[in-house]
């Protein structure tokens, strides 16, 4: 398939249309799971994985390089690193005001914020972005190595 007289690869219009239609729904569903970890099955881990899978879906339909250009690596790394930082911040806030690390009930006792929101914050801002970021990052990175230039297979010089 990689000989020079091979026709260029064209993304299948059928697959692309399906991804166009499905991707908003799956992204919304991933976010839904992220936000509803507290009161329905699933939660941030699952939501993050589905968000990651949505990006993978788009990458398969539109080409991995195009997706990588669209969703810059900076965003991906920022997502996962930011997740850890947010998790730590949520844990550290009670510590800073005299509570202990990750003491969610502290919010309730001091400021009357429901304990639930502490958990939600960890779920939404912490675990979800980490998972999504790592999934997408791994995908991009593993995909990056399989360019024809690396495997020495391709005469299709600058195709992605």
């Amino acid at each position: 398939m990689s000989s020079a007289d091979q026709s260029a690869y064209v993304e299948s219009a059928v697959i692309m249309t399906t991804v166009r239609i499905v991707s908003p729904f799956s992204l919304t569903y991933g976010l839904f799971l992220l936000f509803h970890g507290a009161d329905s099955p699933g939660g941030s881990f699952q939501g993050g994985a589905i968000i990651g899978a949505t990006i993978l879906m788009i990458a398969f339909a539109f080409g991995i390089d195009a997706t990588r250009d669209w969703l810059q690596n900076r965003i991906v790394v920022a997502l996962s690193a930011g997740g850890v930082v947010m998790f730590a911040i949520v844990g550290l806030v009670p510590l800073a005001f005299g509570g202990s690390f990750l003491e969610h009930s502290f919010f309730h006792d001091e400021w009357g914020i429901k304990t639930k929101w502490g958990l939600e914050a960890i779920e939404v801002a912490g675990v979800g972005p980490i998972v999504a970021g790592i999934v997408v990052g791994l995908f991009f990175l593993i995909a990056a190595g399989s360019k024809p230039t690396d495997s020495g297979a391709g005469a299709v010089d600058d195709d992605d």
Partner: peptide, 13 residues
Amino acid sequence: TGVTNAVTAVLAG
């Protein structure tokens, strides 16, 4: 914790 999914309560709380 005020959540209705005990798994989340254990994991995050």
